[in-house]
Amino acid sequence: MSKVFVDQPPGYEQKGHETKVYRLKKALYGLKQAPRAWYSRIESYFIKEGFNKCPYEHTLFIKTAEGGKILIVCLYVDDLIYTGNDATMFEQFKKSMMVEFNMTDLGKMRYFLGIEVIQGSDGIFISQRKYAQEVLERFNMAQCNSVLNPVVPGFKLTKDEGGVEVNSTVYKQMVGSLIRYMERPTEAHLLAAKRAFRYVKGTIDLGIFYKKGGKDELIGYTDSDYAGDQDDRKSTSGYKQPVVTLSTTEAEFIAAASSACQVVWLRRILKSLNQEQYSPTLVYCDNVSTIKLSRNPVMHGRSKHIDIRFHFLRDLVKSEVLELVQCSTQEQIADVLTKPLKVDTFLKMRDLMGVCKFPGKLFATS
């Protein structure tokens, strides 16, 4: 830990040493060094208790025992969630934590980092109902009319330099820091943000249901919206791509390379959790040329200019870490995250992603 000095508190100055300062022996809450000091402290505790820190996710700690027993702990600052398959390991862990730290057991997880969790005998349902309701109330949109999709089909946002400016502070609060046009928002941008809120209003009861006994096979979908940004003509694949692409094949190839990074990371984490993927991870793509390019090492004229960092996708395909598989555009789930879709198509893709209403009576809580 670096050395930290603080002024003497007003009214408690040492006589004859008024110009001197204190050097801290421990990290205080609120200092920028405090999170690192806390993490080092709790990390040393986990290591002492026989946990292994996941090398691919440093807030994930895993402890195993004979007979396939496992205890998994996920750390977020001073909040912990844990799971596993052995009740004895649960109790030992709770008792040990309460002896070592001043902690409280809140019981079965129901709410964590804005996510509501309902656990039952058939599976786990997660949603953000409470958080969504709070956001709508904060911006006086709790009584707004709902819509079925967040963006009007075919609508493209631009800088709208000739548009009427709106309160940038309110706009920034609404959309957060990940959305564009923060420096000069106009009425068009504000209306687009409000439509997204209207979509949230109509989907406040939706979430994702993880059914017990489902497949443990990792799969993925990759897609891009070629030259979708109307200002700089960059393509979109979840986020805006870092370079301007010259063809749909190039845009899809870069999107697939980005997906491959996530595949590698997730496969490594699953292996740490004793859920190793022994076969190549299938990543579905609706662009035939991209699939051929991932398998063919020959540098064609249409692809030789693509940055070398994106070509590691070929190595992953060759080493059978993943495999690009063709799917039809009608089955491309990633479309819902890259471009505005018609209502019926949007709802179909959303259902395929596993988004649904709370199962209700079919879901026995425990």
Score class of each variant (00 low, 15 high):
16 G>M: 04
41 R>N: 14
101 F>I: 05
349 M>K: 13
267 R>C: 12
329 T>H: 04
220 G>H: 10
301 G>W: 03
95 K>S: 14
183 E>P: 02
276 E>S: 07
345 T>K: 12
334 A>G: 05
267 R>W: 08
182 M>G: 12
277 Q>H: 03
266 L>N: 10
261 C>T: 14
135 V>I: 14
69 K>E: 01
165 E>S: 15
311 H>P: 04
117 V>W: 04
173 Q>V: 00
359 P>K: 07
208 I>M: 11
43 E>Y: 12
115 I>Q: 01
349 M>N: 14
331 E>C: 06
245 T>M: 10
57 E>Y: 02
54 C>Y: 02
5 F>K: 11
277 Q>M: 00
101 F>D: 13
163 G>V: 00
283 V>H: 13
120 G>V: 04
254 I>H: 10
304 K>G: 09
23 R>P: 05
163 G>T: 00
343 V>A: 12
249 T>F: 05
130 K>D: 00
261 C>I: 10
167 N>K: 10
349 M>Q: 14
184 R>Y: 10
112 F>I: 00
55 P>W: 08
257 A>W: 07
224 S>H: 09
271 K>D: 14
14 Q>G: 03
162 G>C: 03
169 T>C: 10
176 G>E: 00
246 L>C: 13
249 T>I: 06
135 V>E: 06
193 A>N: 01
93 F>T: 01
365 T>L: 15
227 A>P: 12
244 V>R: 08
315 D>T: 11
217 E>M: 05
223 D>W: 03
319 S>L: 12
366 S>Y: 15
151 V>E: 09
116 E>S: 05
171 Y>C: 00
290 T>H: 06
255 A>P: 10
9 P>N: 12
24 L>G: 08
14 Q>V: 15
55 P>G: 07
106 L>M: 14
68 G>F: 02
319 S>P: 01
129 R>L: 07
339 K>M: 07
344 D>A: 13
119 Q>T: 13
303 S>K: 05
27 A>C: 07
91 E>I: 04
70 I>H: 00
182 M>R: 13
225 D>P: 01
71 L>Q: 06
217 E>D: 13
86 D>H: 02
230 Q>Y: 11
305 H>K: 09
336 V>S: 12
335 D>F: 02
141 M>N: 03
42 I>S: 01
225 D>G: 04
280 P>G: 01
253 F>N: 07
165 E>C: 12
16 G>R: 03
30 G>A: 04
99 V>K: 15
91 E>V: 05
349 M>C: 11
